[in-house]
Design a protein around this nucleic acid. Structure first.
Length: 308
DNA sequence: AACCGCAACAACCGCAAAGGG
DNA sequence: TCCCTTTGCGGTTGTTGCGGT
């Protein structure tokens, strides 16, 4: 694992959000050279980031094949089930969700699912909707709730560690997707078609059709002034690949209502625009246009083998 | 209009495992 | 076998923007 040939002088690494330029550099470098020694990437790619940051950025955001957008009902159920069975083993959970990263799963759990599970746990006796949930799911959810409850009350959005409770989790086995969980509470804060379309992967022509900061997808945190500076030339494409067809991810279209629709709209309207230019499918899973076989040839990232 | 609380999520931090010299 | 470096993972923090008061 060691990579002594990659030794490099210490330097002041940049921190914080990635600029489009940095993304472009990293992406270009990896597409050209493939994955290798992360610690060498910053220097070779001309980035003032540390390798760790580059790796994280690649895995969580730039990597082709990532599915952005709302979690489908199936994905949600898988997360709930696996969280109950495995605890906070986000990387393992993410392995069952092609296109999702552990960070994304973790964030989704911490910001939404955990509360929902807790809420469900407290309402399950009186909530008629719970009757429609599969026994397995309810079991797992109650188990999850128990784990959370024993972890301490707490509110807020701060993550509460629930792992290392694995021993308490029901044993047996096979992880099966629960039946669709009809939940009236699903008029919830589920993320409505986020559709941040991986827009920076879109072809330049498509990007040109969706000009402005909006075309920079979710790094939308990046100041518009920078993003729209014109220095960035997105050169990638978003597409809904064959990976989607025939899979349960058709369910990405499920019509969850978003409690914060306006907020989501604000956050992601840009990408919708971009996606419109690049071609998108309702429900919003996005895959890269590039030939994944070419790109993934030498990749060893955690979920890669599951993606394609 | 200003302030505050909250939600969402990107990114950082620290630790442990893995692997080469 | 030990030491050092890299990588992977999970927890946590920081940033941004919205809604409510």
């Amino acid at each position: 694992m060691g990579c002594r040939s990659c030794d490099k002088p210490k330097m002041n690494y940049r921190k914080g959000l990635w600029s489009p330029e940095e993304d472009q550099r990293l992406r270009d470098y990896i597409l050209k050279h493939g994955l290798g020694c992360w610690s060498a990437v910053p220097a070779k790619a001309g980035l003032q980031r540390n390798g760790k940051s580059c790796r994280l950025r690649w895995i969580n955001y730039l990597r082709p094949g990532l599915k952005r957008g709302m979690f489908s009902q199936e994905e949600e159920d898988v997360v709930i089930n696996l969280q109950a069975k495995l605890g906070n083993k986000w990387s393992q959970i993410a392995m069952h969700l092609p296109g999702r990263t552990d960070n994304e799963v973790k964030n989704y759990w911490n910001s939404y699912l955990k509360k929902r599970v807790m809420q469900l746990g407290s309402n399950s006796s009186s909530n008629p909707a719970s009757k429609n949930a599969s026994p397995e799911l309810l079991t797992s959810m109650s188990a999850t709730t128990e784990l959370i409850m024993t972890g301490g009350g707490g509110g807020g959005s701060t993550a509460t560690s629930t792992h290392d409770h694995d021993a308490n989790i029901g044993s047996s086995g096979a992880i099966s997707a629960a039946e669709p969980f009809v939940d009236q509470q699903h008029q919830h804060q589920h993320q409505q078609a986020k559709n941040y379309a991986f827009a920076d992967w879109m072809p330049a022509t498509a990007a040109a059709a969706a000009p402005g900061p909006e075309s920079y997808s979710m790094s939308a945190h990046w100041p518009a002034s920078t993003a729209s500076s014109g220095n960035v030339t997105p050169s990638h494409g978003a597409f809904v690949g064959d990976q989607m067809s025939g899979s349960s991810y058709a369910a990405l279209q499920h019509p969850h209502q978003h409690h914060h629709q306006q907020q989501e709209h604000h956050h992601h309207q840009s990408a919708v625009t971009a996606a419109g230019a690049a071609g998108m499918v309702a429900g919003g899973g996005y895959f890269d246009l590039l030939n994944m076989g070419d790109i993934y040839g030498g990749f060893t990232t955690t979920n890669d083998d599951l993606l394609f």
